[in-house]
Write a protein that binds this DNA or RNA. Structure first.
Length: 221
DNA sequence: GCAAAGATTTGCT
DNA sequence: GCAAATCTTTGCC
C-alpha cells in the first residue's frame, strides 16, 4: 500500500521543499499500467515579489492554484503546445510553487513512450523515426507533462492524496539520499536581477534525465 | 478589443 | 545557433 506524500514537507519554506522533492516519485494511474517517475530537477518560484513567477501579476485566472493550499498541482499551458507541472508550496494565500523540470522514468515506460508519441506537435508533422533514450523521455518540463499525460484538467489536483490519479509518493526508504546541485533558473530571461540569477534550480548532478547540463562550474555542496 | 510575449522543444540554416 | 510551431494570458488602447 503506497503512502501519501507528507503535506507538511511542502507547506512552509519553498527552497526547502524544492530540495526535498528531488528523488520523490510522481505517479500517474494505478495497477500494472501505472507510470512512475523520479524527480531529478526542479525550480522554485516564490511569492509575488519574485519577478520570474507567474504570481508577479498578482492573482489571475491562470495562477489561482498557486495561492491555494500546498501539495496541489499547478498546471499551466505555455507556448501554445506544452504544459508545465508545479507542486504548490507555502501556506494558503502565499503564491509559491516548485516547477518539475525533469523526471527519470522508473515504471510504465511503454505508456510514457505512447503518451509522448501521441503528444501532437507542430502542424501535424510526424515524429521522426525512433523514440529518444529512455532516460530522455521526460527530460524537460514540457516533456514531463507529455510523458505523464498531464494537462490543465489536472490543475488543482491534490498530489498528497493517495487516491489521486496523479500524485506524489516518497522515495523508497532503501534509496540513498540524492546528491544535489543548484544553479540559476532556466527560461526566465524576462526577469530582472536579482531574480534572474537566484540559484533556485535544483537537480541531481550527473543524472542523464536532467534537462540540460549545469551552468555552474561544478557540483555545489 | 487587439497586440505581444511566454517557467519549451525541435529541426534546419 | 536560430527560428518556427501554436494559442493562452496579459497589458494596454
Amino acid at each position: 500500500v503506497a503512502n501519501g506524500f507528507p503535506r507538511e514537507a511542502l507547506g512552509t519554506d519553498t527552497l526547502h521543499a524544492a530540495r526535498a522533492l528531488i528523488g520523490v516519485r510522481i505517479v500517474r494511474g494505478s495497477g500494472p499500467n501505472a507510470r512512475v517517475a523520479r524527480i531529478v530537477e526542479v525550480e522554485a518560484y516564490i511569492g509575488s515579489d519574485d519577478l520570474a513567477s507567474h504570481a508577479r501579476f498578482g492573482r489571475t485566472r491562470r495562477n489561482g492554484t498557486m495561492f491555494g493550499p500546498p501539495g496541489h498541482a499547478y498546471v499551466y499551458f505555455v507556448y501554445g503546445m506544452y504544459h508545465c507541472l508545479n507542486v504548490v508550496t507555502e501556506p494558503e494565500g502565499t503564491p509559491a510553487a516548485v516547477l518539475i523540470r525533469a523526471v527519470q522514468p522508473i515504471a510504465g515506460l511503454e505508456a510514457m513512450r505512447l503518451a509522448r508519441s501521441e503528444h501532437r506537435r507542430g502542424a501535424g508533422r510526424a515524429r521522426p523515426g525512433g523514440f529518444p533514450e529512455d532516460a530522455r523521455l521526460a527530460a524537460g518540463p514540457g516533456l514531463v507533462c507529455a510523458a505523464l499525460s498531464i494537462t490543465r484538467t489536472d490543475d488543482g489536483v491534490d498530489l498528497c492524496d493517495p487516491a489521486s490519479d496523479l500524485r506524489l509518493e516518497p522515495a523508497p526508504a532503501s534509496e540513498p539520499a540524492p546528491a544535489l546541485a543548484a544553479g540559476p533558473r532556466v527560461g526566465i530571461g524576462y526577469a530582472p536581477e536579482p531574480w534572474l540569477g537566484k540559484p533556485w534550480r535544483f537537480f541531481e548532478p550527473g543524472n542523464p534525465s536532467v534537462s540540460r547540463p549545469a551552468k555552474t562550474r561544478g557540483p555545489e555542496r
